[in-house]
Simulated assay, not measured.
Amino acid sequence: MDLTPYVDNLRQELAVAAEAGGDDARALAERLTAPLESAARLTLLNALSAAMGEVTRELAPGSVDVRLRGLDPEFVVTAPPAPEPFREVREQAEPLAAPMPPPPPPADADDGTMARINFRLPAHLKARAESAAAAEGLSVNAWLVRAVSVALDGGGRTSTPGRGKESGGRGFTGWVR
């Protein structure tokens, strides 16, 4: 998004307002326009960032982020995941086997290197993650590490006993709103 037209419009409005004050006011306005340009850009970026924060709260679990590229902001939209299509479950049931999430990896299992990331998520998801971690007696960080590990190594899907393909009868899987 190019902020230049908005900053130029502000500069023109300041010049028009200074015309009413005479030559001294016009000269002062000309001297102030250069320093005001960076302040105007920063103010516009703050307003855009706040607006995208509100949009993100409404889109959760999707999000809209504002990134600065040079002098201009860029919007990055992350859509919420699409619901799974409905599919028919096979007639024959497989033995009931509820996969258990793997325990957190032992501390000596990794090579000792750690990577740090900043992870932003909506407040309602953060509260749920904190509750789930507390219920399992883990820190939020340990719980998130395990959740990522399960999602990447274990397929990321668990099933509910008595539903879906384990239930035996004819059924459907998917999400409904």
Rank of each mutant, 00 (worst) to 15 (best):
A115S: 10
A20N: 15
R87N: 12
S159C: 15
E74D: 02
L68K: 06
V89L: 07
L32H: 07
M100V: 10
L10R: 06
R163A: 10
F172D: 07
A50V: 04
R177A: 15
L138K: 11
E94Q: 12
K126H: 03
T160P: 00
R157Q: 13
A34I: 08
L45V: 12
A147I: 02
F86Y: 12
D153M: 14
P95F: 02
S63G: 14
M52P: 03
S131H: 11
E84H: 12
R57E: 09
E13A: 14
A127I: 04
A47E: 12
E58W: 12
M52S: 11
A97L: 14
A109D: 15
A17Y: 05
M1L: 14
E54F: 03
E88Y: 12
L152V: 09
P102M: 11
E30N: 05
V150R: 03
F86N: 13
L121S: 10
H124L: 12
P35R: 09
A129W: 01
S38R: 14
Y6C: 08
G22E: 05
G53E: 02
P104H: 05
D111W: 01
R31T: 08
V66R: 05
P102L: 03
R11M: 14
G168C: 15
L138Y: 08
T4R: 11
D110M: 13
L3V: 14
V140M: 10
K126C: 02
E19S: 15
N118M: 01
